[in-house]
């Protein structure tokens, strides 16, 4: 199980990194092509689609590394027990939001499958929409692991 999770994290980082590099190359190529009066509209289209996925994958990476910004003004001054309690409440609220995002996101991707991506016939916008429920699922796993940690090591931040 732990091995599987490590592979999942690694895959997440590799995919996110590859998407970001692809975005750079696509947007650069698009700019050069337009300069040469041979505009390639699809480069921007693919880049923005990749961006949605990269954005939510990176959000999970940041969340796992405690890289999401928080205000610790109050919590830092509370006794350890109270602060751990507050952390659990926070994580439960976050988990509830992520469950909502998975369900609503999946529903939206399904009902809006007729919407085309950038008006390109045959390419559904659902490919973009799906990035959020997928990202929310990964964020939910991270959140639940953080919740488990608050029980295992009560003094951990």
């Amino acid at each position: 199980m732990a091995a599987f999770y490590r592979i999942l994290c690694r895959a997440e980082a590799v995919i996110a990194g590859a998407f970001l590099l692809a975005m750079v190359v696509l947007i650069f190529t698009g700019g050069v092509a337009r300069m040469l009066a041979m505009p390639l509209n699809w480069t921007t289209d693919i880049a923005t689609c990749l961006f949605a996925w990269a954005c939510f994958l990176c959000a999970d990476i940041a969340w796992r590394n405690n890289g999401l910004m928080a205000i610790e003004l109050v919590t830092a001054r509370l006794p350890a027990a109270a602060s751990a309690m507050l952390a659990r409440v926070n994580l439960l609220l976050i988990a509830a939001f992520l469950v909502y995002a998975i369900i609503a996101g999946a529903e939206l991707a399904w009902v809006s499958r007729a919407r085309t991506f950038q008006g390109i016939p045959g390419v559904s916008y659902s490919w973009v929409t799906a990035s959020m429920p997928a990202g929310a699922a990964l964020l939910l796993i991270t959140t639940l692991l953080k919740l488990r940690d608050t029980f295992r090591a009560p003094r951990a931040a």
């Binding site: 337009r34 009066a37 505009p39 509209n41 921007t44 289209d45 008006g119 390109i120």
Partner: peptide, 26 residues
């Protein structure tokens, strides 16, 4: 010919402007 003309991002717009001779840019 060769002029990059901004066009709304929808197939009918793009094809119309292309048919008229320009290079459409969404």
């Amino acid at each position: 010919a060769g002029q990059r003309i901004r066009t709304p991002p929808a197939p009918i717009w793009q094809e119309s402007v292309r048919a008229l001779g320009a290079a459409p840019v969404a």
